[in-house]
Structures are given as structure tokens and as C-alpha cells.
């Protein structure tokens, strides 16, 4: 029974991780950019949600779409004005640039919001299913996370824009020849990455404390999930997230919670060496 509880905890955690990483994975897969901003954008979304709830009494559920739309705009503009200028450069340049932008965002957040942990407390209690206790706010977060991830999947599968994004991911030169405006698709993709990060922040504000100290941790999770699941695909991120959630949950059970993170990173390093395309085997880029 203990193991079932651990498994359930892991799956709930994994759904949150999938939502956290899917935008990062998309940006990496399509733009070939490691977006170091991702962690701070999640925290930024979390702060906006928290202050909407704290100062104006807006429920996080209603704040979420607004925050997500706002992040999309920011992401779109950032990509168009900044990242697009170095999009063809080696990884050292793009990674360093996004890290620089991350430092700026991080610094302003620490100055304006301070690092004090804050959290939206909804006090929903816990569900009890056959002796397995699950806090309702986490289940709520999981459902939202899965819904958003599923929505992104549908957009990529069904919509014109989504098909164009997938086309650019497969071969940007060929996509350009077919009349797709690659620059615009890049900007939209980066916007979607930021949108998912903002939405994740809104969900996390209900479950975890919001503090700038966590931005590096979230970014690390995104790395690990991406490597486990494979790049640039929604099912990959979902699989990676759930695997990481379960692994962390059991590692915490057997080795103590302080080692859960280490096990996740070790798993990532081993997979990088053994199978860089990730568990789902979708081919990445170099």
C-alpha cells in the first residue's frame, strides 16, 4: 500500500513536471535553443498569479489564461527582437544570451518581490481513495497540467500553425521553401514556450511556494525531463515528466528526500550517454 501511495504521488508530480518541461522541450526541438529563461518565467507567472489572488482576490483559475497570454506576448517579442538575431549561432552563444536575459529577469524579481516564499492557499483538503491520500490542490494542479499539455498536443496536431511548427522542427529549410515564414514560427514557438511556462507558474503557485530561489531547480527539472523523454514532442515530455516524477518519488522513499534530486540528475546523465534521443526514441538534433 505504501508503494501504491508513492506511485500515485509520483504520477501527480510527473504530470506537473510534464507541463513544466513541455514548453522548454518545444523551444529546444524547434529553435535549437536551450532556453535558460524558462525557470524564471515559471516563477514570474507564479508571482503574477499570487499577487492577482492576494491583492485582488482573483482565483488562480481565472488568472491563468491572462498570465499565459501575457507571457506569450513577452516570449514572442523577446524572440523576435533578441534571440532571432543569433538563432544561427552555436549553442554557446544562444545559451549564454538566454542566461543573460535570465539574470536580468531574476534580478528584477528578487528586488521587487524579494525571495520570501509565498503561496496561494486554497485549503481544499485531501481526497481519500481506498486509503491513498491525495491533496485536492495537487489533483487540481495535475488535471490542469494534463489539460494544458493535451491542449498543446491538439494545437500541434490539428491547427495550421501547429502543423507549420512541426514542419519547421523537421526541416526549417524545406519549410521555408513551402512558404512558411520561419522567423514568425520561431517567434510563435518561443511565445508558446513562455506561455506554457507562465501557465505552469500559475498552477505551481497553488501547489508549491513561489520564490525566485526555485527558478534554477525548475530549469534543472526541465533539462532532465527533456533528456528522458526526447526533444520537441509533447508525448515525449509527458513520458519524461511522469518517469521523472515516479523515479523521484521512489528515490525519496528509499534514499530519503534529499537524494531525490540527485537520482533525477544521475538518470539524466546516464541517459545522455546511453540513449541521447530519450526513452521515446524521437530523433533529436545533434
Amino acid at each position: 500500500m505504501v508503494y501504491v501511495q508513492t506511485l500515485v504521488n509520483g504520477i501527480v508530480l510527473g504530470a506537473l513536471y510534464a507541463c513544466l518541461a513541455v514548453g522548454f522541450s518545444l523551444v529546444w526541438g524547434v529553435l535549437n535553443v536551450i532556453n535558460m529563461l524558462h525557470g524564471s518565467v515559471i516563477i514570474f507567472g507564479g508571482y503574477l498569479t499570487f499577487f492577482a489572488w492576494h491583492s485582488y482576490g482573483i482565483h488562480p483559475l481565472f488568472a491563468l489564461p491572462v498570465v499565459a497570454a501575457f507571457m506569450f506576448l513577452i516570449g514572442y517579442v523577446t524572440q523576435l527582437l533578441m534571440i532571432n538575431r543569433v538563432i544561427d549561432q552555436p549553442v554557446l552563444t544562444t545559451l549564454t544570451l538566454t542566461f543573460g536575459l535570465d539574470l536580468i529577469l531574476y534580478n528584477f524579481m528578487t528586488v521587487y518581490y524579494t525571495a520570501t516564499p509565498r503561496r496561494v492557499t486554497l485549503d481544499l483538503g485531501a481526497l481519500d481513495l481506498f486509503g491513498i491520500a491525495v491533496p485536492v490542490d495537487r489533483v487540481f494542479g495535475m488535471v490542469l497540467a494534463l489539460a494544458l499539455t493535451g491542449l498543446l498536443y491538439l494545437v500541434l496536431r490539428r491547427s495550421r500553425i501547429g502543423r507549420a511548427i512541426v514542419a519547421v522542427r523537421m526541416d526549417s529549410a524545406a519549410a521555408a521553401l513551402m512558404g512558411i515564414k520561419v522567423d514568425r514560427i520561431y517567434a510563435i514557438t518561443f511565445g508558446i514556450g513562455a506561455l506554457m511556462a507562465g501557465a505552469t507558474g500559475a498552477i505551481f503557485a497553488m501547489v508549491y511556494p513561489v520564490t525566485t530561489n526555485l527558478s534554477g531547480t525548475y530549469l534543472g527539472k526541465a533539462f532532465v525531463v527533456c533528456v528522458i523523454g526526447g526533444l520537441g514532442s509533447v508525448p515525449g515530455a509527458l513520458a519524461g515528466g511522469i518517469v521523472l516524477g515516479i523515479v523521484e518519488s521512489f528515490a525519496g522513499q528509499f534514499f530519503g528526500p534529499q537524494h531525490a534530486l540527485t537520482v533525477g540528475f544521475l538518470l539524466m546523465l546516464i541517459l545522455l550517454v546511453v540513449k541521447p534521443t530519450g526513452l521515446t526514441g524521437i530523433k533529436g538534433y545533434e
Binding site: 529546444w28 535549437n32 536551450i34 552555436p90 549553442v91 554557446l92 545559451l95 533539462f223 533528456v227 540528475f265 539524466m268 546523465l269 545522455l272 550517454v273 541521447p276 533529436g284 538534433y285 545533434e286
Partner: peptide
């Protein structure tokens, strides 16, 4: 590894 994967591994 090369490129992005190497970068991620070195951070890891």
C-alpha cells in the same frame, strides 16, 4: 556528445 547535449551534460 556534441552541441546542446554536451552543454546540458556539462551543466548536469
Amino acid at each position: 556528445m556534441r552541441g546542446h547535449y554536451f552543454a546540458i551534460a556539462s551543466i548536469g
